[in-house]
Design a protein around this nucleic acid. Structure first.
Lengths: 149, 149
DNA sequence: AGCAAGTATATGAGAGTTCAACTAAATTGG
DNA sequence: CCAATTTAGTTGAACTCTCATATACTTGCT
């Protein structure tokens, strides 16, 4: 039997959908407008910039940047065209590829970061009390535990 | 000056991105697999099904289904091809269009709903305590107030 | 060594989304 | 009452994402 949502749950669910979509759109629009990249690409650059040697195996990068393997492959292809990332054959396992953040890529990220962070504040943190931020963290952790296993 | 995120804020932000993306992907995959439609289309059908006469002006439908005008126009074109929605010229204002949910469309929605609701429970509500659900609602309302103005 | 099975990534087609024009109809203001 | 503006909606191109499949390399078995 389907356990339908009661009225309260429906409201919460719709508020959730609306809120998260507003945030996503705000982020994507800001990055696209000011830095010419979608949020996905930004996350890839961030992940690489934090890795030792600014480089990572494709599969690990996919995991960190929350993108699918094939999605990442396409994305890195585009980033390579722009000269922001370069691929290197992995010596240890020659099936593997290293994605390496170039200096241009690092510069692009550095240029994009301030505007992005402002947008993150504007669209999420500025709207919430410190207590709500703590609550949100707990909620997201709970969801991740459930869905990531 | 950029107000960077402190360590706690960064963690919360990353948990937020991970959690919301997991939920979105779960919804989209379930609907695509079991009902052959993306979540966006489902939302359009839901909005129409709740409207008087199961029909709505395109712009109002876009607002309710949280989609852009041009996105909606494309989506309704696809839904029309499947026979789930039909367009009617609006008599009152002849620039306008009515999107009307067909019986087939209603049936498709009815068939898709139970699986979708299960997925909503599984990916969000089951992970949270009743208290967290209340907190989440407050958080989403606050975000909407900020971003919708 | 030799081969089946598994792993890492790439690739191509198909579908959805966005943005910037564009058409058509209604409104406004002189 | 007509020209200018605004509003409703569509369209096409560019781009991204997903899914299924292909390719290249590795590993484990015998």
């Amino acid at each position: 039997m389907t356990r339908w949502l009661d009225a309260d749950e429906q409201h919460t669910w719709r508020n959730f959908l609306a809120a998260t979509q507003l945030i996503d759109e705000a982020l994507d629009r800001q990055l696209q407008r000011d830095a010419g990249m979608p949020h996905t690409y930004y996350m890839i650059l961030v992940a690489l910039s934090e890795a030792p040697g600014r480089s990572m195996r494709m599969s690990e990068l996919a995991a960190r940047a929350q993108s699918s393997q094939s999605g990442l492959s396409h994305a890195v292809a585009r980033l390579e065209e722009r000269g922001w990332v370069r691929r290197e054959r992995c010596p240890a396992d020659r099936r593997g590829n290293l994605a390496v953040l170039t200096d241009d890529g690092f510069a692009a990220l550095a240029a994009a970061a301030p505007g992005h962070v402002e947008e993150v504040r504007r669209s999420l943190f500025d709207a919430l009390t410190p207590e709500q931020v703590r609550q949100l963290d707990g909620i997201c952790v709970a969801v991740r535990r459930t869905l990531e296993g």
